[in-house]
Amino acid sequence: MRKKPSALLIVLFVLMAFIATMYILMIVWAGFASLKDPWEFDDSALAFPKIWSFVNYASAFKSYTVKVPTPTGDVFVGPVRIIINTIFYAGGCAFLGTLVPCITSYVVAKYKFRVLKIYYVIVVVCLSIPIIGGTASQLRIAKSIGIYDTIWGIWLMRGYFIGSYFLIFYSSFMMIPNSFSEAAKIDGAGNFTILFKLVLPLISKTFTTILLILFVNYWNEYETPLMFTPSVPTLAVGLYKFAISASDEYGKTPIQLAGSMILFIPILIMYICLQDKLMGNISMGGIKE
């Protein structure tokens, strides 16, 4: 027998359809606008391009040539190198940024030493502290310990446990019965074996999803590489310089939109290819204790 359509589901469908239409409209419009001659866009933001200005993408792509000062003179880093930098930056930061909160939260969730609860409290407290003027101190510390302007230095800086992903991993680990690890211990498994061979595989989907979410975040991040690795520019740094540019060429809307598309399209491709992994089901429990 056919089910009667639920009013709730109909309303939800309509709402989501509206949101989806809005997103798609915006991106499609941005795509068309990015192909307009800048003066044509000034005359009308709405009209279809009369002249298809693919040169906008060439100009935008050119803007992803970032000048990097070095002791032996300025060096111009081209788009290919910038893409490599971005993969390297995003990949390493994402990996450490996922692994460290994961293993830290595992220890805090599964080992019943009271002192470990401090880590949980630190995470919650730090989530709510707005930090004022920390950049200068961070730069100073980075320079003094020799990690300033190095990719691996940024990885170390990004390998922190504080943040909401700690809470997500924590709640995942809390849902795993202790009997698993107890059984493994009886069989002679050590703590490292239990963690890496038993527990991590159980939360592999969560791990992968967060890894990919962080990869995307770092792909799009410009503030940290701009300040801490000026010699290793990334795509997002290129777009940011572009977006704030008052230069005649890059200050025009269609070219800025073209620059945005250049940043957006690789992520869109990755998103389509890895959709299932990126949006794989995360088994997540709670933080009730």
């Binding site: 989501m16 949101i19 989806a20 997103y23 798609i24 915006m26 991106i27 419009w29 941005a30 606008a33 866009f41 009308s44 933001a45 709405l46 979410i213 995307v216 792909w219 799009n220 410009y222 997002a236 777009l239 940011y240 977006a243 809307t253 800025q256 939109l257 945005s260 940043l263 957006f264 992520i267 869109l268 998103y271 959709q275 990126l278 949006m279």
Partner: peptide, 30 residues
């Protein structure tokens, strides 16, 4: 819907902000 709702998390905030700003500024005004 699952794919589309997740898109803003995938795309740079800078990108979406620029696009949205132009959308509700230039396009809407026209």
């Amino acid at each position: 819907f699952k794919a589309i709702l997740f898109m803003p998390a995938v795309v740079s905030t800078l990108v979406f902000t620029i696009i949205f700003r132009k959308f509700v500024g230039d396009l809407y005004s026209e």
